[in-house]
Design a binder for these strands. Structure first.
Length: 822
RNA sequence: GCGAGACUGGCGGAAUUGGUAGACGCGCUAGACUUAGGAUCUAGUAUCUAACGGUGUGGGGGUUCGAGUCCCCCGUCUCGCACCA
């Protein structure tokens, strides 16, 4: 009979929901396991195969843990604010709130069909005041600690869309992701979160979490710690000073010029009258370049002289001051001391503009007089460096810093590449920033008692260069909380990454109204034990969340230092080589397949395709394999109705007392349990499923030769093994076998009988001079002598030894015998 | 340019610490049962060879009794970072 997946899946989904099987008991903290997938963005495209690929297998892992006795908590929610809903509104006129709510309603139904163990009591969405109120509360706490501030900063601006774009919305070629227009740089006053205050801890914390090395490395590089020093250069005939940052204070005597970022405020103060035109012209050229073009390493070096000179404090040498766009305003001090002899960029620049090159580090095996063909950037012995001559680089760094500090020429300094997090968005569909601008009092925080600052529904959300909220008089006009005078609200909204940087706290009790989250539950259930999501979030969401977590800890609201102790990235499912997206029109709709083969088969297939971390190109070619597997399993259970009632199995059998066929089956089921456990533990679903297929192949051959008790023993274990990977049919099978309680209502797991894992006999490969010449069967743990005697009795193998002298032989128990002959 | 990872049959992919390469699945071939088969079951399926046997894990070298696995060189692809002083 064909497996009636539709009835069975509906039946069990209803059962789980009616019985509240997946409601987490938060009072039980032993063996707690918080399993989380990155919550879903509710776009009009609904669920696609990529979501299934993320959620299904993760739920399988969680279900496995549940059966193993863990108190599993697995919530789901909606990352509901964001640009796409707003863009959709601009196009269609449908309000973001309405489209989002419709999408959520649809997606909720789709999610339920996967059959995950989501605790729907924890469902949340970020676009409601009950949630975003706490974004605003967080903002206020950050502000009070000086970690939220406003400054003028360059941002990506799309002249066609008339709006600011986040970095991630700018394509690699510097164009707008939406319309393809070239993005320009614009200076605007923006809100920032001071993530840089946590740079050091974000870096060192990486050592305490079990994340993929790749991801940790990306964060490490993103934070970009560099140790060095600041050095102050006096400007000739001026009171101005130029402070540079360098990681190579040991090359300080080799400075032959100084570079300032073109936009640096010092430039106007330094530039000599006859150089003003050149500087202005150069700055103009730079302005038309995008950030990406400007920072491209392949671009030829450009720059302009200022006519001014700086004085190197350590040797009083007079060096020219240039401006060049390879000095970045946003890193370090925006000024660079150039040592062309020992820095590739400086070398290239000096060659092009014919500036001096002075060698101060001696490459081992060369002479101080040798001409440099390229920059020597390694360490060495100092030369041309006065009192430091002859000192090795490493030692010289410390000595020179000491010298700088003693003479007030500079100091040791650590710099980070990480920049503060720009959270302002000139957009409607996000959390209003809880600030009021008063003509008298300036920037004033909304008081906590006045939260939330509600996002008005009635807004002209068409983007016309300013925040849509700015055009809503009712929203904008407000009294100043300090002086009571007329004031205006902040019109910008927050980056949606703020929402997602603490949602895992809120899940625990999304209805709590007097604080940001239930701190009592958080103490029990945070950190998240297993977090699964895409690798593309490595330096965005995953970094922001760590930052906000540490801040929340510093507020005294959690004891943990890190949000996610274990992290796994599922691979990307592509279609014809491209990432699935609505705009490319290559989205594969899972409903087509679930309607045909059911959720269990579809989930199984996604897991069976290959390694979870790899993903791959979509193809439905192999789906019939998993379909057949489920059909065969169903037939097997149908043929053994109520067997666990009529012939209940013991917990364990003495393998020696079983018949030959029973032995084979008994070993196989226990070996399968053993294999399956290690595979699922490591998110290796493909091989776990392969082991179940091997099992069913074996059962097909021999189960009818077993006693009913052994049949019951094997089938109840097989049903439990199906539980995580195919939960609906597993429940059905469990019931068919005659079990009273549902598998997930009263979780059960069968440990492998360790004594049944090894075979009686082993296949031993026999090699002669490393070449395989045959294989033979010997009792397990046979010794070398015995195996050799079998070799000589085997004609086919013995043939290769005839007339040869045995020099030596290598024997690996139960595996191989290699005879070396001459 | 720098960094990380990958490369195994027609296809997706398996292979503890180096120890019988190709598990499992798709596809394909043959057979069985069928009115039928895009259902099911059985057998086969890396490759060359009539066979003995040889050759095979991107290419080339090396270490070893033995290499998909370790080392060196090269190629292709994917991802990340891209002048961070």
């Amino acid at each position: 009979m064909r497996y009636p997946f539709s009835e069975v899946e509906t039946k069990w989904q209803k059962f789980w929901e009616d019985k509240n099987v997946y409601k987490t008991d938060f009072s039980k903290t032993d063996k707690k396991l918080y399993t989380l997938v990155m919550f879903i963005y509710p776009s009009g495209a609904k669920l696609h195969c990529g979501h299934w690929y993320n959620y299904g297998p993760t739920d399988t892992w969680a279900r496995y843990k549940k059966l193993k006795g863990f108190n599993v908590y697995e919530p789901m929610g909606y990352d509901a604010f964001g640009l796409p809903a707003e863009n959709y509104a601009i196009k269609t006129g449908i309000h973001p709130y309405d489209s989002t709510m419709t999408n959520i309603a649809d997606i909720r139904q789709q999610l339920k069909k996967i059959g995950c163990m989501y605790d729907w009591n924890s469902e949340l969405m970020t676009c409601v005041p009950e949630y975003y109120k706490w974004n605003q509360w967080l903002f206020i706490q950050l502000y009070k600690k000086g970690l939220a501030y406003r400054k003028n900063a360059p941002v990506n601006w799309c002249p066609s869309c008339q709006t600011v774009l986040a970095n991630e919305q700018v394509s690699a070629d510097g164009t707008c992701e939406r319309c393809g227009t070239e993005v320009i740089q614009k200076h605007l006053t923006q809100w920032f979160f001071k993530i840089t205050d946590y740079a050091e801890e974000l870096l060192s914390g990486l050592n305490t979490i079990n994340w993929p090395d790749k991801t940790k490395l990306m964060q490490k590089n993103w934070i970009g710690k560099s140790v060095g020093s600041e050095v102050k250069f006096k400007v000739e005939n001026s009171d101005e000073e130029i402070t540079v940052f360098t990681t190579r204070p040991d090359t300080l005597f080799g400075v032959t010029y100084v570079v300032i970022a073109p936009e640096h405020s010092l430039v106007d103060k330094l530039v000599k009258p006859e150089f003003k035109d050149g500087v202005a012209k150069y700055r103009d050229e730079i302005k038309s370049l995008t950030e990406i073009e400007r920072t491209s390493t392949v671009k030829e070096k450009t720059g302009a002289p200022t006519g001014a000179y700086a004085i190197n404090p350590v040797n009083n040498e007079r060096v020219p001051i240039w401006i060049a766009d390879y000095a970045l305003l946003t890193y370090g001090t925006g000024c660079v001391m150039a040592v062309p002899a020992h820095d590739e960029r400086d070398f290239e620049f000096a060659k092009k503009f014919e500036l001096a090159i002075k060698k101060v580090i001696l490459q081992p095996g060369t002479n101080p007089e040798d001409e440099l063909k390229e920059a020597y950037t390694d360490t060495g012995i100092l030369v041309n460096s006065a009192q430091f001559d002859g000192t090795p680089s490493v030692e010289a760094k410390a000595k020179i810093i000491e010298y700088l500090e003693q003479n007030n020429f500079g100091r040791g300094k650590i710099n980070y590449r990480l920049r503060d997090w720009l959270i302002s968005r000139q957009r409607y569909w996000g959390t209003p920033i809880p600030v009021i601008h008063c003509p008298k009092c300036g920037e004033v925080l909304v008081e906590e008692k006045d939260l939330p600052v509600t996002l008005p529904y009635d807004v002209d959300f068409k983007s016309e260069g300013v925040s849509p909220l700015a055009r809503n008089e009712k929203f904008m006009n407000v009294k100043c909380p300090k002086c009571g005078g007329d004031a205006k609200r902040e019109a910008d909204t927050m980056d949606t990454f703020v929402d997602s940087s603490w949602y895992y706290f809120r899940y625990l009790n999304p209805k709590i109204s007097d604080k940001i989250f239930d701190t009592e539950l958080a103490d029990k259930f945070i950190p998240v034990d297993m977090y699964v999501g895409g690798a593309e979030h490595a330096t965005m969401h995953l970094l922001y969340a760590r930052f906000i977590h540490k801040f929340i800890r510093d507020l005294g609201l959690t004891k943990s230092d890190e949000p996610f102790s274990n992290l796994i990235h599922q691979g990307t499912i592509t279609n014809q080589g491209a990432k699935m997206s609505k705009s490319k029109g290559n989205v594969v709709n899972p409903d087509t397949f679930t309607a045909k083969v059911g959720s269990d088969v579809f989930r199984l297939y996604l897991m069976f395709m290959g390694p979870y971390e790899l993903g791959g190109d979509w193809s439905d070619k192999g789906i019939s394999g998993t379909e057949r597997f489920i059909e065969r399993a169903y037939d097997l259970f149908t043929a053994h109705k109520d067997i666990c009632k009529t012939a209940p199995a013991k917990e364990k059998y003495d393998i020696a007392a079983l018949s030959n066929e029973e032995k084979v089956i008994y070993r196989k089921i226990n070996q399968t349990i053993n294999k399956y456990e290690t595979e699922i533990d490591h998110f290796r679903f493909n091989t776990a499923i392969a082991s179940l297929m091997e099992l069913i192949n074996e059962l097909g051959k021999n189960i009818n030769l077993c006693s009913n008790e052994i049949k019951a023993y094997v089938l109840e274990r097989f049903a439990a093994l199906l539980g995580p990977v195919a939960p609906h049919i597993a429940e059905e099978a469990w019931q068919m076998l005659g079990k009273e309680k549902s598998l997930f209502e009263a979780p059960v797991w069968f440990d492998a009988d360790k004594s049944a894992l090894t075979e009686d006999s082993a296949q031993i490969a026999v090699q002669v001079n490393g070449k395989l010449r045959g294989s033979l069967v010997a009792p397990t743990n046979s010794d070398e002598e015995f195996v050799k005697s079998l070799v000589y009795a085997d004609e086919k193998i013995a043939k290769h030894l005839e007339g040869k002298t045995v020099i030596k032989s290598i024997f690996v128990k139960n595996k191989i015998l290699n005879i070396v002959v001459k």
